[in-house]
Every structure is written in structure tokens, then in C-alpha cells.
């Protein structure tokens, strides 16, 4: 028996050393693995949310998203199973954690939302005026149902946005400039709130982009926002931050928004995604 333990031990150690990227873990277990690794007030700020994660309302939204994904819809009566999110048509496992990425068919770096819109237009024949595409926010929107479903299939995967194409690095680097770019009535940049550890706005602990174990939770969207009673996307977070910074409205899926998301995803590289997450 003792010998057997000795044999297993190196395997266990090797597994632990390669961090916690493990798609078989539940989102709350992924979060716990990060809490065990770093001392972070951000990760632990709401024990109530952590407790509620197994019953995350986002699971229902993801379930509806799965149905929508498989359903033949739109003027072309097609499902989204032919949509390529970067790993081949219909391959969703670990696809989102490798976005934004460059897509040769559009010649653009695309995030989850812009790729989804692209597929709904080209494969299903929806137009930008259709509610399926136009309505971007809220748990009841097609967009959030689909994003939550697709995102949830990257739970536990390590963020790994490709940086092979020059457009991918160019967008990431432009995103970095945007992150530190001060402007507007209050002179804020993203770095004003996200460059330090353990700082608070009022009672909310802020995540630090320089601590990847903390930052992976910050960028793990879609997440159920308890205070909003809705599932929210990365694009919604970006819009909210610019609004709070008094810098006006960033356009959904604009290259500016995708550049910022490229930078923030790159900053969480190697850390496991928590999908769907639950946030304050």
C-alpha cells in the first residue's frame, strides 16, 4: 500500500505543478484552486457568491443557449453547428479561451461576440436589424444565451489567445495602449482601478491585471451579475467601464473593444477560466 502511494505521488505533484487548467472541474472548484494559490481579497470578497456558484442562474441561460445553437434558425434555416470559432466548425470545447483570434475568412481579429454575429449573419442569414443580433444584453437575449453556452464549454481551460498572426499582436498591443490611456472628465484609464492589488472602490475589491490568478476571474465572462440579476458579457463590461470613466460609449464589437479584450485576455494567459462565473 505504501509503495502504491509512492508511485502515485509524483503523478499528483506533476498535475498540481501544471496549474489548475482542468476542464473536468466545476467553476467553483476552478475558483477554489486559484484561492488556494494566491492570497487575494478580490477572489474571496463574496463568500455568498462562492456558495451560490453551484446554483448559478447562468446555467439555465447556457442550457437555453445550447438549444438555440443546435436549432435551425434564420432565413437560411441553419444551425450554428457550422460556425468556426477557431478550432474548426462546431468545435466549442476550449474555443473561447483561445479568442480573440485572427480569422482568415474575414481577415479580422474577432472576439466571441463578433464571431457569433458573423456566423448568425453568414450561416443563418440574420440581418443586423433582427432582434437575434440587435439585442446584445440581458439573460433573455439570444446573444447572451449563445455566449453563455459557448463560454461554458471553455470552463477550466487555460486562457491561451493565439499570437501567431501579426494582426493578433497588433491588436493586443493597441489594447495595451488603450488600457493605460487616460482621458475624459476624470482623467481615468483602465489602469486607475486595475493596476494594484486589494484596492477598493467603495466596498468592492478590484482585480489587478498584473496578477493573472486574480485577473482570470475578472475576465471570466459571461458571468451572472448578482446586482444586475442578469448574465453579462465581456462587451458589456467594456461598455460599463468606459461609461464609468466618463469617456462615452464604446461601440459593441468595434476593433477598439476587441483590442482591449485581446490585451486583457493575454494578461490572464495560462490561468484557468471560470465559466460561467458569478460576480457581485
Amino acid at each position: 500500500m505504501f509503495n502504491r502511494t509512492l508511485l502515485v505521488l509524483p503523478v499528483v505533484l506533476a498535475f498540481a505543478a501544471t496549474a489548475s487548467a482542468d476542464p473536468s472541474m466545476a467553476p467553483e472548484e476552478v475558483l477554489q484552486s486559484l484561492i488556494d494559490k494566491v492570497d487575494s481579497k478580490y477572489l474571496t470578497q463574496s463568500s455568498q457568491n462562492i456558495m451560490m456558484m453551484p446554483d448559478n442562474p447562468a446555467y439555465w441561460v447556457a442550457e437555453e443557449g445550447e438549444e438555440l445553437f443546435m436549432e435551425k434558425r434564420g432565413p437560411k434555416n441553419a444551425s450554428l453547428e457550422g460556425c468556426d470559432f477557431g478550432k474548426g466548425p462546431g468545435v466549442l470545447e476550449g474555443a473561447y479561451t483561445e479568442m480573440p483570434r485572427y480569422f482568415a475568412d474575414t481577415g479580422k481579429v474577432m472576439d466571441l461576440e463578433s464571431r457569433l454575429v458573423h456566423c448568425m449573419m453568414t450561416l443563418q442569414g440574420f440581418s443586423k436589424k433582427d432582434a437575434a443580433i440587435k439585442k446584445r444584453h440581458g439573460s433573455g437575449s439570444d446573444m447572451m444565451k449563445l455566449q453563455t453556452y459557448i463560454g461554458s464549454l471553455s470552463n477550466g481551460y487555460a486562457w491561451n489567445p493565439p499570437m501567431d498572426h501579426p494582426m493578433e499582436t497588433a491588436m493586443r498591443d493597441a489594447g495595451k495602449e488603450l488600457f493605460y490611456r487616460r482621458a475624459g472628465t476624470l482623467d481615468f484609464s483602465c489602469n486607475t482601478c486595475h493596476g494594484d492589488t486589494g484596492k477598493r472602490i467603495r466596498a468592492s475589491v478590484l482585480p489587478n491585471i498584473n496578477v493573472p490568478e486574480e485577473w482570470t476571474k475578472a475576465i471570466s465572462w459571461p458571468a451572472f451579475r448578482v446586482g444586475h440579476d442578469n448574465v453579462r458579457s465581456s462587451q458589456h463590461r467594456v461598455r460599463g467601464c468606459y461609461w464609468q470613466m466618463r469617456q462615452g460609449r464604446i461601440e459593441a464589437t468595434s476593433d477598439a473593444s476587441i483590442a482591449l479584450i485581446s490585451y486583457w485576455t493575454d494578461a490572464a494567459r495560462g490561468q484557468p477560466a471560470i465559466l460561467p462565473d458569478m460576480k457581485r
Binding site: A170, D173, A174, G175, E177, L178, R181, T185, Y242, Q247, G248, R249, I250, E251, S254, D255, A256, S257, A259
Partner: peptide, 21 residues
């Protein structure tokens, strides 16, 4: 810079929206 181009030339923001001031 590229970031400025994304903001001002590539439709990054709703630039014409009126502000309080």
C-alpha cells in the same frame, strides 16, 4: 498610434454624442 486610430478613425466610439459640458 494604432490605439488612437481605433478610437478616432475606425469607429471605436460614438464620437458625436453630446456631453454635459
Amino acid at each position: 498610434s494604432l490605439s488612437d486610430s481605433l478610437i478616432f478613425e475606425q469607429g471605436g466610439f460614438r464620437l458625436s454624442q453630446k456631453t454635459q459640458e
